[in-house]
Write a protein that binds this DNA or RNA. Structure first.
Length: 293
DNA sequence: CTTGAGCGG
């Protein structure tokens, strides 16, 4: 039994199963044939079918071979298409595929794509739109009390585990050595405050490191942040990856930024990856200028 | 051709 089962051709694949379970007389029809493609990339497929009345009909289809978006199909590639089949394809019917084409719908995620229009909320007369026009004076940091310099979230002291009062009127360059040692006994001491790490806090170390920022241009349209991360990670620890995306269409704008924790890593990445071929394009990788705000 | 979004009391 097992032998017999093994010798069954069982060539039927799920993608080719007949939809209708009426009697299948297709074997009476002449085989499908493919002509071409010619040098213009036009391919003709001639096949025969029974129509609903049971009459034999001939169907001729002309197909232009799909061209890649940016590449011209070379003459050699066109010529190769008319080669006789070899390998596994020899045993396949004319025109059948060795690889199945999935018809499954794949929904692409475009989080900020068309739909929400924040501009509309700013219709004339909207009181909320007026706030913030001359609102610079309202900008008072809740952590250090400074006015007009930064918001709370950008405060250089915001990560220090100390009472707010101790920072008022005290610039970052002055002594911040009063650390957790002076704090309440048993209080939690964040790692950044332990073992004399206090000197780093309040300097640029604690700030968002826009410093080691690398600009990457000439990215292909479908390069996303995970791709960029994968590409740059080998050079050192990456703190941020950003790919500019068109808000309306959700399409990549073809450039992005990568931030490294260590400047040396960024430099090595620039040296290695600038001019690197990626997705059929030549990457430009260089130091990013500070963002204009 | 191509230097970022977001959160504002």
């Amino acid at each position: 039994m097992a032998v017999e089962a093994a010798t069954q051709p069982s060539k039927v694949r799920w993608g080719e199963l007949e939809e209708d379970d009426g009697e299948d007389l297709d074997f009476l029809l002449p085989p499908k044939q493919v002509i071409g493609p010619n040098e213009n990339g036009i391919k003709k497929v001639v096949e025969y079918k029974f129509n609903d009345e049971g009459n034999k009909v001939k169907i001729t289809t002309s197909i232009r071979i799909r061209k890649l978006a940016n590449a011209r199909l070379s003459k050699h590639a066109v010529e190769r298409r008319s080669w006789p089949k070899f390998g596994d394809a020899v045993h396949e019917d004319v025109g059948s595929r060795l690889t199945m084409v999935s018809t499954e719908e794949i929904l692409l995620e475009r989080p900020r794509a068309a739909g929400t229009k924040p501009e509309e909320a700013k219709a004339a007369g909207d009181p909320l739109a007026q706030i913030g026009k001359g609102g610079a004076a309202l900008m008072v940091c809740r952590t250090c009390g400074k006015k007009g310099e930064h918001w709370t979230s950008r405060c250089p002291y915001k990560d220090l585990a100390q009472p707010i009062e101790s920072f008022i009127d005290r610039p970052p360059s002055s002594e911040t050595t009063a650390t957790a040692t002076g704090a309440t006994k048993g209080a939690y001491v964040p790692p950044s405050m332990r073992g004399g790490g206090a000197e780093r806090v309040g300097t640029d170390m604690r700030r968002r490191n826009e410093e080691n920022s690398v600009r990457v241009t000439n990215l292909s349209e479908d390069t996303r942040e995970p791709d960029l991360h994968e590409l740059f990670r080998p050079f050192g620890s990456v703190s941020r990856v950003y790919v500019a995306v068109d808000q309306k269409t959700g399409m990549s704008r073809g450039f992005g930024f990568v931030n490294f924790v260590n400047r040396e890593d960024a430099e090595r990445a620039i040296n290695k990856l600038n001019g690197y071929g990626y997705d059929n394009l030549i990457l430009r990788v260089e130091w990013a200028a500070p963002r204009s705000n």
